[in-house]
Design a protein around this nucleic acid. Structure first.
Length: 659
DNA sequence: GTACTTTAT
DNA sequence: GGATAAAGTAC
C-alpha cells in the first residue's frame, strides 16, 4: 500500500478496494464522474438486412443484401464470406454470390400518394421513386421498446422497499444514437443490484469517511458468462487477482446487457452486438470488436492495452478532417504513438480545447453523458438526381413526395394529438455547392401534407430567386426544432409529472433544449396511468429543502442539470389531515407518521447527493474540458447571400393564406 | 434565428 | 454513395 494510506488504516492488513464509498454511490444518479460507471453500446447487426430477413422470413444462413438502386446498403453476415460488402454494386454481388437475395428498399412513387411500398421494379425506377426508410424506423422503435421493457424488468426486480426509498425515480437512461444503435447508462440500475446483493454498502448515516477506500468485494463475486468476450488485461494486471468493485459492476452490466439482447432476439428475432465499458467511447469501440451477436467487455484494467492497439481515427470524432489533421501534425495514426506526446506538445499544434480532449480520450477518458433521448430532433426527406433536374416543375413533383413522407412520419410522432410539432421547415438544394433556406412553420396552422407542400414551394421559390438553381443535383426537405405540444391532455399530464419530467414538458425552449425523457415512446395514455398510480401509491416526502435555489442559474454543470430528479413535488392535496403526523426537524415539514422512516432515508440520500454534486463541480472545474473538440472549420469565405433582405415575398410571389 | 459545416451510420 | 440524423459555428 502507498504512503497515502490514512493513518487509521486497520493494522489487520485487509486488502482495500481501489474505489471509495463516494465513487460507488455516485452510480446512483448516473454521474459521469465516477470510474465505476457502466455504459453499454448496443448495435444491431447489419440492421437493414436483418429487417428484410425478419420481414421476409428468410433463414439466418441465407445470404442477403439490401439494395438501393444499384448499390448495396446492408449485407448480412451469411453473405460476407462471399466477399460481398457495401459499395459493391448489385451486378458484382450476383457474380460473387449467385444465390444472394437482393432486396430493394421500399419506395414512394410519384402519383401514389404518401404510401411507400415494396415494389418488384423499384431498382429500375430511380426516376420516379424515392427511398423510404420507414420500415426500418418502425422496427427500430419496436426494438427500443423491447430493450426498455427489459431494463424496466430489471429495475423492478431489484427493488425492495428499502432500495426503493433510496433509488426512487432512477432508471437506466437510454440514448438512441442512430436508427440501429443505442447507448445505455447502466449505472443507476447496477447501483440497485449492488445494494440488493451487498447490504453492507447501503448508505449508512454512520459512515464518516466517504473518501476512504471500500473493502474489497468477496473474491468469489465475479463469474463471467462463457459468451462474454473479455478484452485482455493490461500488462501489470492478472486474471488471478482478486476482483474489485469495477469488475463486479462490469459483470452485472454484462448480465443486464445479455438479457436485453436475449429479449430482442426472443421477441423480435434480431441479433445485436454490444460493448460494455466505463464510458461511451470505449463501449462503442467494444461493440464493434466481436460481431455478430456477441458482447465485449472492456474492463477498467484492460483499457490501456485495448486502446493502445487502435488507430485514433477509429475514435468517435476523429474519423474525419480533425483526425486527418492530427495524423498530419503528429505523423502517426496510432494511439500508442500519440500517447508519447505531452499535453503541451498537443497544445502546440491544436487548440486548447481539442488538445485537452484528445489527451484524455486516448487515455480512455470520456465524460460525455448518455442523454436519455429516444425521439428524433429533425426529419428529413431527400433525393439525389442523376441526371440532374432542370425545372421548378420537376422539383415540385419531389416536394410533393417529401411533404407526404415527412407528414406521415409526423403523424407517427403524434402531430395529430398535438404531442409534438416542428417549428421550422428547411429546403436544401445542391447544384455544385449546397444552399439552404428555412422558414418558421406558422403555429396557427394545423400541420398537414398540404401545408408542408406549400411551405416547401415557398422555399423553392426563394432558392431559385437566390441564384443558380439548375441543374439541381440534390434536393431535400426537413423539419425540426420540435416543441412539445400543450394540447388538452398534455396540460393535465404536465401537472401530474414530477421534477425533470415536468420540466421537459413545459420548458421545451430552454437554452440547453430540455430533452425528452426515457419514456417518450410510451403512449401518453399509458404513461399517464403509470404516473398517477405511482403518485398515489407512494405519497412522496414533502418538498426537498436542500434543493432550494438549485434551479435555473445554479445549473451550471452537467451533473446537476442532468441528474435524474427524484425529488417529488408536494401533492396538490395532502394525503390526510387525520393521520398521526411527524414533524421533521430537518425540513420543518409535517408528514404522516408511517412515512417517517422513508423520509429520513430520503434526507440521507439527499445529503449524499448534495455532497456528490459539490464534488462533481469541483472535479469539473479542475478538469476543465471534457467536451468533444470544437469545430475547427473555418468559413469557406465568399459564398455570400445575395444582399437582398429576406422575409419579404419575391416579386410576383403570393403570400400564403396562412401567413 | 438562419445558413452552413462536420461527423456519423 | 445515397439517405438520414445530430451537433456545432458564424453571423
Amino acid at each position: 500500500m502507498s504512503s497515502a494510506d490514512p493513518p487509521n488504516a486497520s493494522p489487520d492488513a485487509v486488502k482495500r478496494s481501489r474505489y471509495t464509498l463516494r465513487q460507488l454511490h455516485l452510480l446512483r444518479q448516473g454521474s459521469t464522474a465516477t470510474p465505476l460507471r457502466a455504459i453499454a453500446h448496443i448495435d444491431l447487426d447489419a440492421f437493414y438486412a436483418q429487417c428484410e430477413m425478419v420481414r421476409l422470413g428468410i433463414p439466418r444462413d441465407t445470404p442477403l443484401a439490401v439494395r438501393q438502386w444499384d448499390s448495396l446498403i446492408a449485407v448480412n453476415y451469411a453473405a460476407r464470406p462471399f466477399g460481398i460488402t457495401r459499395m459493391l454494386n448489385a451486378v458484382d454481388a450476383r457474380k460473387a454470390c449467385p444465390n444472394i437475395v437482393l432486396q430493394h428498399v421500399a419506395t414512394f412513387r410519384e402519383g401514389e400518394g404518401g404510401r411507400w411500398a415494396y415494389r418488384d421494379d423499384s431498382f429500375r425506377s430511380i426516376k420516379t421513386d424515392k427511398v423510404s426508410l420507414d420500415p426500418y424506423r418502425a422496427e427500430s422503435r419496436k426494438i427500443l421498446k423491447t430493450m426498455k421493457e427489459e431494463l424496466d424488468r430489471w429495475t423492478t426486480e431489484y427493488t425492495d422497499d428499502e432500495i426503493h426509498s433510496l433509488t426512487q425515480g432512477i432508471s437506466a437512461g437510454l440514448e438512441k444514437a442512430s436508427i440501429d444503435e443505442v447507448f445505455i447508462d447502466l449505472s443507476p440500475l447496477i447501483y440497485r443490484v449492488l445494494l440488493q446483493r451487498y447490504p453492507e454498502i447501503r448508505p449508512n448515516p454512520h459512515d464518516e469517511d466517504r473518501d476512504a477506500e471500500l473493502p474489497q468485494p468477496p473474491t468469489t463475486a465475479v463469474q463471467w458468462d462463457s459468451e462474454d468476450c473479455l478484452i485482455g488485461l493490461d500488462r501489470e494486471e492478472r486474471e488471478e487477482d482478486d476482483p474489485d468493485w469495477d469488475d463486479i459492476v462490469m459483470q452485472i452490466a454484462a448480465d443486464i446487457v445479455r438479457s436485453v439482447r436475449m429479449a430482442v432476439w426472443e421477441k423480435l428475432h434480431y441479433t445485436c452486438s454490444a460493448g460494455i465499458a466505463r464510458n461511451k467511447m470505449l463501449s462503442k469501440l467494444g461493440s464493434a470488436c466481436n460481431k455478430p451477436d456477441k458482447q465485449t467487455v472492456v474492463r477498467n484494467r484492460a483499457i490501456q492495452i485495448f486502446l493502445g492497439g487502435y488507430k485514433f481515427t477509429q475514435i468517435r470524432m476523429l474519423g474525419g478532417k480533425l483526425g486527418d489533421q492530427i495524423t498530419a501534425d503528429f505523423g502517426t495514426e496510432k494511439v500508442s504513438d500519440l500517447l508519447k506526446f505531452s499535453l503541451d506538445q498537443l497544445r502546440a499544434k491544436l487548440d486548447d480545447h481539442t488538445a485537452t480532449w484528445l489527451y484524455g480520450v486516448i487515455r480512455g477518458e470520456d465524460r460525455s453523458e448518455v442523454s436519455p433521448r429516444t425521439q428524433m430532433k429533425s426529419m428529413l426527406s431527400a433525393k439525389s438526381f442523376r441526371p440532374s433536374i432542370n425545372s421548378a416543375g420537376q422539383a415540385e413533383k419531389w416536394l410533393r413526395i417529401f411533404a407526404a413522407d415527412i407528414y406521415g412520419r409526423l403523424v407517427e410522432d403524434g402531430v395529430l394529438e398535438n404531442r409534438r410539432r416542428p417549428r421550422v421547415i428547411t429546403l436544401h438544394h445542391r447544384v455544385v455547392q449546397s444552399r439552404s433556406r428555412q422558414i418558421p412553420i406558422p403555429g396557427s396552422n394545423t400541420i398537414d401534407e398540404n401545408l408542408l407542400f406549400e411551405l416547401a414551394k415557398t422555399l423553392l421559390r426563394q432558392v431559385i430567386a437566390d441564384g443558380q438553381a439548375w441543374p439541381c443535383a440534390n434536393l431535400s426537405l426537413s423539419v425540426g426544432s420540435f416543441e412539445d405540444g400543450v394540447g388538452k391532455n398534455r396540460a393535465i399530464e404536465g401537472f401530474l409529472l414530477r421534477g425533470d419530467r415536468a420540466k421537459s414538458v413545459t420548458q421545451s425552449t430552454s437554452v440547453r433544449e430540455a430533452d425528452s425523457t426515457a419514456n417518450d415512446h410510451i403512449p401518453p395514455e399509458k404513461k399517464r396511468k403509470v404516473d398517477i398510480k405511482r403518485f398515489f401509491a407512494h405519497p412522496p416526502p414533502p418538498g426537498d429543502p436542500t434543493s432550494i435555489g438549485h434551479d435555473s442559474a445554479q445549473h451550471t454543470d452537467q451533473e446537476v442539470s442532468n441528474a435524474p430528479s427524484d425529488e417529488p413535488e408536494a401533492p396538490a392535496l395532502a394525503p390526510a389531515d387525520v393521520l398521526p403526523q411527524y414533524n421533521c426537524d430537518r425540513c420543518s415539514k409535517s408528514i404522516p407518521e408511517y412515512e417517517k422512516e422513508e423520509h429520513d432515508d430520503w434526507h440521507f440520500a439527499k445529503d449524499l447527493e448534495t455532497q456528490d454534486r459539490q464534488e462533481a463541480r469541483n472535479a469539473q472545474q479542475q478538469n476543465q474540458q471534457q467536451t468533444p473538440p470544437a469545430n475547427t472549420s473555418r468559413r469557406s469565405g465568399s459564398r455570400g447571400r445575395g444582399g437582398r433582405s429576406r422575409g419579404k415575398p419575391e416579386k410576383g410571389q403570393m403570400r400564403l393564406a396562412f401567413e
